[in-house]
């Protein structure tokens, strides 16, 4: 009797697994044929960097405060500061993507929301030097769609919740 039960169990489980596999045959393939079809990226997808300019005045947002250079764990950001009209400007700004670990610290720390990450993820190069982005490259990258997360937004999300405002006392 035990033998018959075992045989039945084996047959049933084999049939079950074959049924599960057969269900896939009737389903549409989930593959996205990459170079021809590009899948939609998530909102917070982040890959390369861009330096933003103020849209109204056309002025660079970066004040060369050196925070991103100091916070970068792999030390790939370096800049030269320049003082013009009472505010700082980055005279040179280099970001070596070859060493970048995409931790987003520089974006989180930027007080001006000047450096952001963009959704341009097809950034492979054959020449290592081309991965070193200079200031002009970064400013040009503005034309790509930025990631949804920018510095001020991240800081707002990470700050402790604000206390509910006190209800106004009724006038006596």
């Amino acid at each position: 009797m035990a033998f018959i039960k075992e045989a039945w169990d084996v047959t049933r489980s084999v049939g079950q697994s074959m049924g599960v596999v057969f269900k896939n045959l009737l389903r549409k393939p989930t593959t996205v044929s990459y170079p021809y079809v590009k899948r939609e990226l998530p909102d917070r997808q982040r890959a390369t960097f861009a330096l933003l300019t103020n849209k109204e005045t056309g002025e660079e947002k970066c004040t060369a405060c050196l925070i991103c250079q100091n916070i970068c764990p792999s030390q790939v950001i370096s800049m030269v500061k320049e003082q013009v009209n009472n505010r700082g400007f980055a005279k040179e700004f280099t970001l070596d993507l070859g060493g970048c670990i995409f931790c987003e610290f520089c974006v989180q720390a930027c007080p001006q929301d000047a450096i952001v990450m963009i959704k341009l993820w097809e950034n492979s190069e054959v020449d290592r030097e081309k991965l070193k982005l200079n200031k002009q490259n970064l400013l040009d990258n503005q034309k790509y769609q930025p990631s949804e997360m920018i510095g001020s937004k991240i800081r707002e999300m990470q700050s402790p919740p604000k206390a509910a405002p006190k209800p106004a006392e009724p006038a006596p």
């Binding site: 596999v21 057969f22 896939n24 045959l25 389903r27 549409k28 393939p29 989930t30 593959t31 044929s33």
Partner: peptide
């Protein structure tokens, strides 16, 4: 095999 695993296979 590709179709059985929701893939396309060689194309």
């Amino acid at each position: 095999a590709g179709r059985l695993q929701s893939r396309i296979g060689p194309q």
